[in-house]
Amino acid sequence: MVKQAPWERIAAMPAFHALLVAKQRFIIPATLFFLVYYFALPLLVGYAPRMMETKVFGVINVAYVFALSQFLMAWILAAFYIRAAKRFDVMAAGVVAELDRQPQGE
C-alpha cells in the first residue's frame, strides 16, 4: 500500500455519502424484490398446488412457467445491476479523485 488513506475524512465526504445512498437505493429494493419473487415459487408450489397445476397451454402449467421465469428474472436483474454499477464506479472514482486533490494531513 502506498499511503494510509484517511478513512474518516473519506467517510465524511458528501460525495462518498452520495455513493452509499445511490447504492442502497438500488441494492436494497433489488434484493427484496428477488427474495420475494424467488420464495413465492416454493411457497406457492408447497401451499397452493391446485393453482400451480393450472394448465397454461398444452401440458405446460403455471408452476413450470413460473420456474422458467425465475431464470429470466435473475438475468434481467443482473443486467440492470451491471448498468447501475457503472454509475457507482464513476461515483467511487470521483471520491478517490477528490481525495487526491485535497492536501494530505490536517
Binding site: A67, L77, A78
Partner: peptide, 21 residues
Amino acid sequence: GYDGFMYSVGWLVAYLTVLLI
C-alpha cells in the same frame, strides 16, 4: 419430475445474492 427442477432454479437465483451483496 418438476420437484427436481427446483434445485436448478435455486442454484441459479442464488447468484443474485453473490452479485448484489
